[in-house]
């Protein structure tokens, strides 16, 4: 994250460091946020613990969500440091239920009470259909579980797309970075997952996510020197360069190409076809 994310990361790390230092010195901070840059989304209760769910915005949204979890023991108000956690987001539709792409949960900060991962909600809730998140964890050989409804409202900008590829596989692509786009050559990150079955959404490996950012509000012009998104190695998110020559509303037209270069999703933007069927939107 050469341009925008580095300072944010640095602040985050410093903040985490400070908080962890303080935690070592006293136990007073138990109820405070794990870091100044994380806001609590909600508490999920069970008999033994309060599972605290965090994100940078304090909300969950359609598309890619970076989430953090802390587990507070109700008996001693201490945060658990040795939990093994898995999670299962579920969309409860009227006709069926399905899950969505998600990561494993790991501890990667200096705060060893904080567990991190991501979930990609590929569709919004509505009056009769909703998401819930089931968190299963094990502490010292004992299994626990906590479940709660998760708010995934409709979004006015498209940041995730689910589609049936021309190879008859189902894919999900989600926009991740830049979170704060600039008029610059931005480092771009997106994720590509495959829908193996209703519950299994592994990272799709070896593809290329081609980008063609356009400004429909101004003659649908594009921008120069974009770099299509690829993986550094299997299992990773996709990274490339997104060039934005001015502020405003941009439609990032997408094409997903498989390892042999066949386009499995989206289409090329031409004079007559002004938009790909597959796209992200940003407005800054």
């Amino acid at each position: 994250m050469k341009f925008s994310i580095k300072p944010i990361l640095a602040v985050l790390m410093m903040a985490l460091f400070l908080v962890s230092c303080r935690n070592e010195n006293s136990d007073i901070d138990e109820t405070s946020n794990p870091s100044t840059s994380l806001k609590k989304i909600k508490d999920i209760d069970n008999n033994d613990h309060i599972v605290e769910l965090y994100s940078v915005s304090g909300t969950t949204a359609l598309g890619y969500n970076e989430l953090s979890i802390r587990i507070k023991n109700k008996s001693n108000n201490q945060y658990e440091k040795n939990a093994t956690i898995t999670w299962t987001p579920m969309m409860h539709m009227t006709s069926m239920s399905h899950s969505c792409p998600k990561s494993l949960i790991t501890k990667n900060g200096s705060d060893d009470t904080l567990y991190n991962g991501y979930i990609v909600f590929q569709m919004p809730q509505n009056a009769s259909e909703f998401w819930n998140l089931k968190i299963d964890y094990t502490i010292n050989g004992t299994d626990y579980t906590a479940t709660s409804v998760i708010d995934v409202p409709v979004s006015d900008k498209k940041t995730v797309a689910s589609f049936l590829g021309s190879d008859n596989k189902r894919y999900i692509v989600a926009y991740i970075d830049p979170k704060n786009p600039k008029v610059a050559l931005n480092d771009m990150t997106a994720g590509v997952w495959m829908m193996q079955d209703m519950m299994t959404f592994p990272v799709a490996n070896g593809y290329t996510l081609k980008i063609d950012p356009r400004m429909p509000g101004m003659g649908n012009h594009s921008s120069p020197n974009n770099v299509n998104l690829t993986q550094i190695s299997a299992g990773n998110l996709y990274k490339g360069k997104l060039s934005l020559t001015m502020t405003g509303y941009w439609k990032i037209n997408l094409q997903l190409a498989d390892a042999s270069g066949n386009i499995v999703g989206g289409n090329e933007v031409t004079d007559t076809q002004t938009s790909s069927s597959l796209f992200f939107e940003i407005d800054f």
Binding site: V183, M215, M246, T247, G248, Y249
Partner: peptide
């Protein structure tokens, strides 16, 4: 350069 999008919901285009 500032351009005013026809859709007033969108942000101004600026460079």
């Amino acid at each position: 350069m500032t351009m005013y999008p026809n859709n007033p919901e969108e942000n101004l285009m600026f460079m």
